[in-house]
């Protein structure tokens, strides 16, 4: 899955790095770095990161429109 973060919007609060640590990482106190190509098995985690970002800075293929963000089936 392709993704991009609008780092002008990003506030560096690290919710995404907490929810999808294989995709997002903090570098120093508030710089976010990320892999713009996430593995398919990261889909659920990525969806949660997209939904949790307080400033909607993350756009990912097929996940960015609110209606399409699926909850994890078992509510994890």
């Amino acid at each position: 899955m392709r993704l991009v973060v609008d780092l002008n919007k990003c506030q560096g609060y690290a919710q995404c790095a907490f929810l999808a640590p294989d995709v997002f990482a903090m570098h120093g106190e508030e710089s976010l770095i990320y892999n713009p190509r996430a593995e398919e098995e990261q889909r659920e985690r990525l969806a949660r990161a997209v939904a949790a970002c307080p400033v909607q800075a993350i756009t990912a293929d097929g996940l960015d429109r609110v209606g399409e963000v699926r909850e994890a089936p078992d509510g994890r």
Binding site: R2, L3, V4, Y34, P36, A60
Partner: peptide
């Protein structure tokens, strides 16, 4: 952390 050939935009 990322491949130079895989930064395609969503």
């Amino acid at each position: 952390m990322a491949s130079p050939h895989h930064t395609e935009l969503p």
